[in-house]
Amino acid sequence: MARVLIVDDHAVLREALALFLNQEPDLEVTGQAGSLAEACEMLGDGFDAAVVELTLPDGSATGLVHELRKANPSAAILVLTAETDPVRHGAAVAGGADGVMHKSSRAQEIVEAVRRLLKSQALNSLPETARLLRLSERFRELVRRSGVERLTPREREILQALADGFETRDIAARLGMSERTVHTHVASILRKLGVTSQLQAVVHAVRFGIVRIRPFSIDEG
């Protein structure tokens, strides 16, 4: 029986997929993660296949795909995502994903995709895979030019807080630092990204998958 790891921040969707996969006689979900941090803790666990969402609360999962591949070179890795940007898909394929599917796919299609990959059968056509890899090369060049790779973990954390709509005083309280220190970090972020406003910095970071725009809740604020 093939062991499957699911990485997705939407608990309802993740658990529904796990329930569906567990109904199959040859598949068993042995691990679930809702974030990059949780998934990284499971890298040492044995798995035969991983189903991964690209956009997670604590960052892009393209790097996670690479780590999953390193941890288990023979595993089948399926990117199942709501992300529509083919450049991001290409980055995932370049990182080691065996195939990419959209979340709008039917449950049975996902099951069959996992089975195909477990048998080392191609999910995406060779021309499509080649196109994604070309886009990935272009994306890596854009990342190198963008300055996002120079951001520190703390600066990325502050960028996410800005994307979430927090003011300077709120960020300072959440991260245990002074408002002056937050301003210093923000100035460093703007300089590294070559932009002149916090809004431009957030847009820039979203484009390159550094931060995520979370769904708005009427219970917030």
Results as ranks from 00 to 15, higher is better:
2 A>M: 10
2 A>H: 05
2 A>P: 15
5 L>A: 10
7 V>G: 08
7 V>A: 05
7 V>Y: 09
8 D>E: 14
9 D>C: 09
16 A>D: 01
16 A>L: 08
18 A>H: 02
20 F>H: 09
20 F>S: 11
23 Q>N: 12
24 E>R: 15
26 D>R: 13
27 L>S: 12
27 L>F: 12
28 E>Q: 14
29 V>D: 08
32 Q>C: 10
32 Q>N: 03
32 Q>D: 00
34 G>M: 06
38 E>S: 11
39 A>Y: 01
41 E>K: 14
41 E>V: 13
42 M>I: 02
42 M>L: 15
43 L>E: 05
45 D>E: 13
46 G>I: 00
46 G>P: 01
48 D>S: 10
49 A>R: 02
51 V>R: 06
53 E>H: 08
56 L>C: 09
58 D>L: 05
62 T>H: 05
62 T>Y: 08
63 G>E: 07
63 G>D: 03
68 L>E: 02
70 K>Y: 00
71 A>L: 09
71 A>K: 04
72 N>Y: 00
74 S>L: 12
76 A>C: 05
77 I>E: 10
77 I>Q: 09
78 L>T: 11
81 T>L: 06
82 A>H: 03
83 E>S: 11
85 D>N: 15
86 P>N: 04
88 R>H: 14
89 H>S: 03
89 H>R: 07
90 G>S: 04
91 A>D: 09
92 A>N: 03
94 A>Q: 13
95 G>P: 04
95 G>C: 07
100 V>E: 01
102 H>L: 15
103 K>R: 15
104 S>L: 08
104 S>N: 08
105 S>V: 12
109 E>P: 01
110 I>G: 04
113 A>H: 01
114 V>W: 07
115 R>P: 08
116 R>H: 11
117 L>T: 04
119 K>C: 08
123 L>F: 04
124 N>C: 05
124 N>W: 00
124 N>T: 04
126 L>T: 11
130 A>V: 15
131 R>P: 00
132 L>Q: 06
132 L>Y: 14
134 R>E: 13
137 E>Q: 13
139 F>W: 15
140 R>F: 13
144 R>D: 13
145 R>Q: 15
148 V>T: 15
153 P>I: 10
155 E>V: 09
155 E>S: 08
156 R>S: 06
158 I>D: 02
159 L>D: 07
160 Q>I: 06
163 A>H: 01
165 G>M: 01
165 G>Y: 01
167 E>G: 11
168 T>V: 15
171 I>W: 03
171 I>S: 04
174 R>F: 01
174 R>N: 10
174 R>S: 12
175 L>D: 06
175 L>H: 14
180 R>E: 13
180 R>M: 09
185 H>N: 14
187 A>Y: 02
190 L>S: 08
192 K>Y: 07
194 G>C: 12
194 G>N: 06
194 G>S: 11
195 V>M: 05
196 T>S: 15
196 T>V: 08
198 Q>W: 00
199 L>Y: 02
199 L>G: 06
201 A>W: 03
203 V>P: 00
204 H>D: 05
205 A>S: 09
206 V>F: 00
206 V>I: 12
208 F>L: 13
211 V>Y: 05
212 R>Q: 14
215 P>T: 02
217 S>Q: 03
218 I>E: 07
221 G>K: 10
